[in-house]
Design a protein around this nucleic acid. Structure first.
Lengths: 204, 204
DNA sequence: ATAATAGTTGACTATTTAGTTCACTATGTT
DNA sequence: AACATAGTGAACTAAATAGTCAACTATTAT
């Protein structure tokens, strides 16, 4: 009972977009409210602070992202194809962002993590968890690829960590250089890290 | 003639440390002045704005960093040893920062670039140049390693770009997780990307 | 010694920011 | 219909922030 509203959702969408296209530090509560079309009174009705909103938005955003990842990393798909699909998906996303915002935006969690990890404990923890999830997607693909004999990776967790670092590094470079073409080499680099034989890698 | 002062230098040191240990967005001119022990009037005597100071400080900081890199990447050192030395140096630096600030800080240029690239054109350009310099150090080591037959790398520029992405990604991960141990795998990953034979890699 | 000048200071303004308050409004429930 | 309540809005405060200014001080070249 009582009134209903999607203001909370609008606020969460707004902060994510502002952080991603700009940064956490320069995103103010006033900006968020303006973008969401919500008055400050309502903001404080739903949230205690900017970091509180950011935390909730981050978690919600990740939940919906996970659905896509579950599809891409489906165990039904051959393990190396999962990685190929993931890279392709990532490239397409960055391209779309560049068209929409005029700028390559990279990985929202990684960029935010780099910015706030020394300052915002709660956000740092959430981001760590999200990145760990990402790693697990990679890890299971690597484990499957190892089991199938496609690659030699006795420690899939370690390999996944390496690949994640490379992947996130590339995305960040693409953001810094504002150039999607940086991402062209993504698959090649990952396969090199995995020690995929050139013959296998060629089956694009 | 006239008065002499190191206030300009102090301001440049202060902003670098504040950005690195925190972020660009949350670093205010007042904070910078307080840390440097300089009054705002003097700040504006030397600089037009925060981004102006940041630009100068970034360039000066890079210049001094280059001296170290010139030593590490000296052509007198065997090419793969240069990379080993670089990784070791990097690990040591991060460890020191963790002791000093209680936090792993990662790569200052990369973190700053990720934060401001969509907002601060001038800084973005400077950071791009710095990262390109870093790439060139790696590239020449890779080219030399290729020439010596240690590795097969017909396109050293591309390989260097890959390795830089991986290296910066790892440093950023170390910052986000506040854990230097993430950096333990640096050399291993780089050598995997380079396709260094295990026998060669083992010569630690 | 002193004039020219490089650098300093603190008080000032205007704006932006986070956060509060309380009367008000819309809506589901009875 | 009317009541309980989820959500709204506009005006408010206090603090932080960027930026200005003019008088002041220290140094150095002559």
């Amino acid at each position: 009972m009582g009134r209903v509203s999607d203001a909370k959702k609008r606020l969460m969408d707004a902060i994510l977009e502002l952080i991603w296209s700009g940064s956490y530090g320069t995103t103010t509560i006033d900006h968020i409210c303006e973008k969401a079309g919500v008055k400050k009174g309502s903001f404080y009705y739903f949230f205690d602070s900017k970091s509180d909103l950011a935390a909730e938005a981050l978690e919600a955003g990740w939940k919906s992202k996970q659905e896509e990842l579950d599809r891409i990393f489906s165990p039904m798909v051959p393990p190396l194809d999962r990685i190929r699909k993931y890279c392709g998906f990532s490239y397409k996303t960055q391209q779309e962002m560049k068209e929409k915002f005029g700028h390559v935006l990279g990985c929202p969690q990684f960029a935010l993590g780099a910015e706030v990890s020394t300052q915002e404990d709660r956000l740092q923890k959430i981001i760590q968890e999200i990145l760990d999830c990402k790693r697990k997607y990679l890890e299971s693909a690597i484990r499957d690829a190892h089991a199938t004999g496609l690659i030699k990776a006795p420690d899939p967790g370690a390999k996944a960590r390496m690949i994640l670092a490379y992947y996130e590094g590339l995305l960040t470079q693409a953001r810094i250089q504002n150039d999607v073409e940086v991402l062209r080499e993504t698959v090649g680099g990952i396969f090199a890290l995995l020690g995929v034989k050139e013959a296998e890698a060629a089956i694009a």
